[in-house]
């Protein structure tokens, strides 16, 4: 086991280093452009406020970290297959689960190292160029909000990693895996946003119906909880983080089942469909049951208790 960890780390350690350097390089590039623009005579190159700001550091930091997660996850299994060394690993007297676990763990360690490195570099850059006061969070309780944002960010990071790892287990080529992983992340984010918009649309519609006295308070109550959640930043963050963690678990399940499944390459793509289908069925029914239970408690049990 120890030697497996050693080997995976030796193969992965370049990636976090590369991404930290990339982050630094991009920011230095932006600084250079800003500097040149500010000190050149004549036309202005950078937009008002500058191209290199606290926000740009944050944005490039998030982008680089997420990309690091994609590359770490997307390459760690498919690079074995593309180099043909997968059969070397599977011929060792080690259960497939251990191999899968070490790869998932070390890949995540690599991605986390990149995240940490970028975070430290980003803070350093901000402190050097803008000072600590630039990191202001407009909220009544900055610390709690910061904690929630961190949780959200980490959930997103983990989900991106897990999705990329799952794609890597299904694909035999590193480059293709990374591309597919990026596409999958975008597709899932798009689907997520789409669903939120849909729910928002539905609840807003119901609200206007209520305001126009087309439906009773009683009927609207069923949508109230949903509406409240959607329009409250804290609860949205909690819900999104929860969804992302669920996605992580599903992705890991998919990767576990398809790890080393070299047998039927074509049939392999049915695995994620099957698992996603299973989880959706489970979650949808569970979610519906819980929501229904919540409604019952809110509108029937609680008033009954209050009447006592």
């Amino acid at each position: 086991m120890k030697t497996l960890i050693w080997k995976e780390w030796r193969e992965t350690r370049m990636i976090p280093a590369a991404f930290c350097l990339l982050f630094l390089a991009i920011n230095l590039f932006l600084i250079t452009i800003q500097y040149l623009a500010d000190h050149m005579h004549g036309a202005r190159v950078t937009p008002p406020g500058g191209i290199y700001t606290v926000d740009s550091v944050k944005l490039t930091g998030v982008a680089c970290s997420l990309l690091a997660a994609v590359v770490c996850g997307g390459s760690i299994v498919s690079s074995e297959a593309s180099k043909g060394t997968m059969s070397f690993l599977t011929s060792l007297p080690v259960p497939k689960k251990s191999l899968w676990l070490v790869k998932a763990g070390i890949g995540f360690a690599g991605a986390s190292a990149a995240l940490l490195g970028i975070l430290l570099l980003g803070l350093a850059l901000i402190w050097v160029n803008f000072g600590w006061s630039a990191i202001a969070i407009a909220h009544q309780d900055p610390l709690a909000f910061l904690v929630m944002l961190t949780v959200l960010m980490l959930s997103a990071f983990t989900a991106v990693y897990a999705v990329s790892y799952a794609v890597s287990c299904l694909n035999n080529q590193t480059f293709a895996s990374i591309v597919f992983a990026i596409l999958a992340c975008f597709a899932i984010s798009g689907a997520g946003f789409g669903m939120i918009l849909l729910l928002d649309g539905v609840t807003t519609q119901k609200l206007s119906e209520f305001n126009n006295h087309l439906i009773t308070l009683h009927e609207f109550d069923y949508y109230l909880a949903l509406y409240a959640t959607l329009h409250n930043p804290e609860s949205m963050i909690v819900a999104t983080s929860f969804a992302l963690l669920t996605l992580t678990v599903i992705a890991l399940h998919i990767s576990n089942v398809s790890f080393g499944a070299t047998e039927e390459p074509r049939r392999r793509y049915l695995i994620p469909l099957r698992i996603v289908g299973k989880w959706t069925a489970v979650y949808a029914s569970l979610g519906a049951a819980l929501y229904g239970l919540y409604m019952v408690i809110l509108f029937h049990v609680q008033p009954a208790l209050m009447r006592q």
């Binding site: 120890k2 030697t3 180099k83 997968m86 080690v94």
Partner: peptide, 24 residues
């Protein structure tokens, strides 16, 4: 088992390969 295509990690030295495999 010795397979046809002899997959091994080409970045490892002979010693590292043996030390990688032997503890298992």
């Amino acid at each position: 088992y010795i397979p046809e295509r002899l997959p091994m990690y080409d970045w490892m030295t002979v010693e590292e390969t043996l030390r990688f495999v032997s503890p298992h």
